[in-house]
């Protein structure tokens, strides 16, 4: 039995070596970067490719075509209608069909893999939460059931632990945003872990938008106390203001910046680790590595499932904390003890 396994492994090793020596050299870095980057087509598996629409605004002119036009029969990149795809970006093609450096006025609104994946997640979000909302209407005042009973504790957790605990009595205004980012991030994190899934929440543009929304909501809900703390921090001498004000203003920006980087880095790192573990098989050119790689990858996958939820929670929690800081009615140090009733 043991011998049979060794034989099998050695045979597979040989055949794997044979297969890899046929093509060009395997570069794990390229493979990983390709997997976590955005794309104009969606590879589910070899041969199962969904070509997504390219939408361009070229100096006010609307151009749209399928991204399959960038490939010829041999799956080589070719220019199409004066545009060329190069290293994951669309450029204007010059006379010889090479990408030109001139990108002025060319805006790319293509439905990329990430956008398509986001649409899938949105459809899923609508499907799940509209059905839950309707079941709340159907059995009003009764115990939750089915999907409703799975999501209800989570919604209550977001409301009680995240919103109420950190924002205070004005929490209700922020509930739609907090619930939406929580489930949006969580669903997209999980979809990103699906085989063939896009790395949406590990894309800096996505986390940038989410963090910016948190920043805008924080800034626009900031009350007198919030701005007071920024422009005239209590307990700090006036002559320190030229230092304190820039520091506090930078502080406003670093908070959402950290949100942006944290989500992006956590999700991308998870993808990179799992892909690296699988790449080990091809780096060592041996199937014998596979059990170890797979075992570690499975472990990482479960960890990623946790991280998917954890990062959604952290993003929502920190957003709620920033909102809470913006709307908080402060008890200043100088009226501590006898400030009760003065507010």
């Amino acid at each position: 039995m043991k011998k049979l396994f060794i034989l099998l492994f050695s045979f597979l090793t040989i055949s794997a070596q044979a297969a890899s020596s046929e093509g060009e050299e395997f570069k794990p870095g390229d493979l990983i970067m390709h997997h976590i980057a955005d794309d104009y087509s969606w590879h589910f598996a070899d041969g199962a490719v969904l070509y997504l629409p390219v939408i361009l605004i070229d100096n006010g002119k609307f151009v749209s075509f399928s991204s399959s036009n960038f490939y010829n029969e041999n799956h080589e990149l070719v220019p199409y209608e004066g545009y060329v795809l190069n290293h994951g970006h669309i450029y204007r093609a010059d006379a010889s069909g090479e990408p030109s450096e001139d990108k002025a006025g060319l805006y790319d609104f293509s439905i990329t893999k990430n956008v398509a994946s986001m649409f899938v997640s949105v459809a899923l979000l609508f499907l799940v939460f509209f059905s839950i909302a309707s079941s709340y209407k159907k059995n009003a005042g009764k115990a939750p059931r089915g999907l409703q009973s799975f999501f209800e504790p989570i919604v209550i957790f977001v409301r009680d632990e995240i919103a109420k605990g950190n924002i205070g009595p004005k929490y209700e205004r922020y509930m739609p945003y907090l619930l939406t980012i929580f489930f949006f991030i969580w669903f997209n994190n999980l979809l990103g872990l699906m085989p063939g899934g896009a790395n949406l929440t590990g894309n800096i543009a996505v986390t940038l938008v989410l963090a910016t929304l948190t920043l805008l909501i924080t800034v626009f809900s900031g009350n007198k106390n919030y701005w007071g703390h920024i422009f005239a921090t209590p307990g700090v001498p006036k002559w320190l203001a030229p230092i304190m004000i820039p520091v506090e203003l930078i502080g406003i920006l670093t908070k959402p910046f950290s949100l942006m980087v944290r989500l992006f880095a956590n999700i991308t790192a998870g993808h990179i680790i799992i892909l690296s573990l699988f790449s080990l098989i091809f780096i060592f050119k041996s199937v014998a590595v596979a059990p170890i790689s797979v075992a570690f990858a499975i472990f990482m996958f479960f960890l990623e499932l946790l991280v998917a939820l954890l990062q959604a929670y952290i993003f929502t929690l920190l957003s709620a904390m920033y909102f809470g800081g913006a709307v908080e009615e402060h008890d200043h140090v100088d009226d501590m003890g006898f400030g009760e009733g003065a507010h």
Binding site: Y107, S110, I111, V115, N203, I204, A205, V209, T268
Partner: peptide, 15 residues
């Protein structure tokens, strides 16, 4: 560097 450069189209669609 491509990884940390936000893509304009994606920002638009995401927003």
């Amino acid at each position: 560097m491509d990884l940390v450069t936000p893509n304009f189209g994606l920002i638009f669609w995401q927003l």
